[in-house]
Amino acid sequence: MDALIHARGLTKQFGSITAVAGIDLDVTRGEAFGFLGPNGAGKSSTMRMIGCVSPPSGGTLRILGLDPVKDGSAIRGRLGVVPQADTLDNELTVKENLVIYGRYFGLSRADVRKRADELLEFVQLSERADSKVEPLSGGMKRRLTIARALVNDPEVLLLDEPTTGLDPQARHVVWDRLFRLKQRGVTLILTTHYMDEAEQLCDRLVVMDGGTIAAEGSPLELIREYSTREVVELRFAGEAPEIGEDAFGDLVQRVEVLPDRLLLYTDDGDALVPVAHERLHPQSVLVRRSTLEDVFLRLTGRTLVD
């Protein structure tokens, strides 16, 4: 196996605060790997360590078989990075941003100009090539940042919350471009707190919480392991009735009581619905498949962690 990223007991501390508390990771070539987790879970700190812009506080980390502390410059030359906040050069035009970035990677002026045109085409920004960066929309800036990260034809693309703050149209364009990169064999490593994004893009993901890895697997595996096949949502006009975990016997594995709703985690929604109707008289009933969101909330809780 060709492990592009290999971490054992990786930790990151900022003074007395532990951002990453000893995680183990292996990402293989061609994989789309996701970090899922609430804010402050340690996703970005991990990404910065992988990007060789943040020295690990402890543990081992190998990227492309190299040591990020000793060979940071060589590793960064083979990575593409899309940071959480856009760091585009506002004093330059759209195309100049790509050209100079390619130069930072040691590409020749002629090569980089050609490459810039191709990339602008790829992210659908050719018409804005000579525009300043400032007036671009959020989605355009994001696409330009992605194009910039691809200028050195990276083996690994690191994306820290690639679609946060974008409108649905812009998100779909970004997803589409990332999917194409994945098909071309680029290894994608991304953080997100959008479950649909993780389900769409990731072959494998870890759920991080409090600096540790709470669960690992493919989206389907995680749903199978940490949730049931289906969820029956019962809505009530007033407050939802308090019921115990075993109110429905074997039919329901887990019950979650929310202010106006009951969530019943079950493997057989169709069998459960009539029973639940009869016993609890809800205002409405919805049967849906379990999603990553259910896994996420189960693992990281519903309380706000900010």
């Binding site: 990007g51 812009v53 940071g72 410059s73 060589a74 960064r76 030359g77 990575l79 990075v81 940071p83 906040a85 760091t87 585009l88 050069d89 506002n90 004093e91 970035y101 930072y104 990677f105 040691g106 910039r148 050195n152």
Partner: peptide
């Protein structure tokens, strides 16, 4: 403010 160096340090530049 410009975050110019942040983006540079993600490249081989140090």
């Amino acid at each position: 403010y410009g975050k110019v160096y942040d983006s540079m340090l993600a490249t081989p530049l140090g």
